[in-house]
Amino acid sequence: MNEKKELAVAALRNGTVIDHIPSESLFKAVEMLGIANLDKSVTIGFNLASRRLGRKGIIKIADVELSPETVSRIAILAPTAVINTIRDYRVVEKRPVALPEEIVDQIVCNNPKCVTRNQPIPTRFNVVDRGPVRVRCHYCGHEAVGDQIVIK
């Protein structure tokens, strides 16, 4: 790895680096991950140059590995993100987030008259478009796109 690149963000011994987050989604991702309440050391990069995205965001969290549920929540916000798992300064796993066909119980339906908003029912959304992400409620048919999507 290029040494200058490594210096751009503090080195991490163990933990997770979420890379290639679109800049406009970075702070939503920070909020969604509950970073303000975390006692781990966290480095956040905003508006970094990216060949793929133009400008990107990056989040480095020490001593935390993400659960599959958290990874799929990130996929909804930032479908371009790549999750790097770091152990002993080495990237042991590097995988792009994957947005499934159906997202179960992770999104709140924006339709106040939806049955899922008024009954104890897990929501189900179908991904109808991936760039930008557009989801459709399995029950009431309402669609939400991009930053209209409310994550539980």
């Binding site: 939806c114 049955v115 008024n118 029912i121 409620c137 399995h138 029950y139 009431c140 048919g141 309402h142």
Partner: peptide, 10 residues
Amino acid sequence: RHYLEGAALY
């Protein structure tokens, strides 16, 4: 018949 949308599918 229900006032909530998606109730019948559920």
